[in-house]
C-alpha cells in the first residue's frame, strides 16, 4: 500500500484496456471447446443419414427403421388405404399442413403431399405421436391408420391426426428413394 501513491489510480490507458480485451478474447475462445463438446459427435452424425432396403416390404406391409434414435415407419400401402386417404377433404383434417420436411412449411396435407414423391403407395414417416412422444400402433384405430395407446390419438392411413389430443400430423422426414428398393432418410 505504501507505494501505491506513485501510480495514477484513475489512469486507464490503452495498454490496460488492450490487455483486458485480449484476456477476454482468450477466455471466450477457451470456452467454445467446452460447449461444443456437448454437440453430437462424429459417430452420431455419421448415422444422421441412413439407407434402408425396402425390397422386402410387400403391399400392405411395413417396417420400422431406427433413425436418429426414433422409429421410422415405412409402409407400402394397399390401394384401399390410398383411396381412403385421398378421399378425405382438407376441411375434415385437424391439422391441414403436410408436415413434410421435403416440402414447404405451408404445403397442404393432401395425401399426395404426405406420400413419397412419385410413389404414392409409400408412406415414410417418423413414428412418434405428436402429442407426447409415444409410438402409435399400426393398422388400428377408427381410421385404420395408427392409434396411440397412450392418450388415444388416432391417425388415418396417411398418418394425419384425426382425433384425440395430438396437435399435428405425424412428421415426414427428409427422404428420397435413391432406387426402387432403397430409401435414404436424412
Amino acid at each position: 500500500m505504501s507505494a501505491n501513491e506513485t501510480l495514477e489510480p484513475t489512469r486507464r490507458d490503452f495498454l490496460y484496456i488492450a490487455t483486458g480485451a485480449v484476456a477476454a478474447v482468450g477466455a471466450a475462445s477457451v470456452a467454445w471447446p467446452f460447449i461444443d463438446q456437448m454437440n453430437p459427435d462424429a459417430a452420431t452424425l455419421a448415422l444422421a443419414e441412413i439407407e434402408v432396403d425396402v425390397s422386402q416390404v410387400a403391399v400392405g406391409q411395413s417396417i420400422t427403421a431406427k433413425w436418429r434414435g426414433k422409429p421410422i415407419f415405412i409402409r407400402q400401402r394397399t390401394p384401399e388405404e390410398i383411396e381412403a386417404a385421398k378421399t378425405v377433404s382438407l376441411d375434415e383434417l385437424k391439422d391441414p399442413v403436410a408436415r413434410n420436411a421435403n416440402l414447404g412449411a405451408d404445403a397442404p396435407a393432401t395425401d399426395e403431399n404426405r406420400s413419397a414423391k412419385g410413389k404414392e403407395a409409400w408412406l415414410v414417416m417418423v413414428g412418434v405421436c405428436t402429442h407426447l412422444g409415444c409410438i402409435p400402433l399400426g393398422q388400428s384405430g377408427d381410421y385404420n391408420g395408427w392409434f396411440c395407446p397412450c392418450h388415444g390419438s388416432t391417425y388415418d392411413t396417411s398418418g394425419r391426426i384425426r382425433s384425440g389430443p395430438a396437435p399435428e400430423n405425424m412428421a415426414i422426414p427428409a427422404f428420397e428413394f435413391i432406387s426402387d428398393t432403397t430409401v435414404r432418410i436424412g
Binding site: 467454445w32 471447446p33 463438446q37 459427435d41 462424429a42
Partner: peptide
C-alpha cells in the same frame, strides 16, 4: 478413443 476421434474438441480436452 472415441473422445480422441469423434467428440468435438475431444482430443484437446
Amino acid at each position: 478413443e472415441a473422445i480422441m476421434r469423434d467428440v468435438n474438441w475431444g482430443w484437446l480436452l
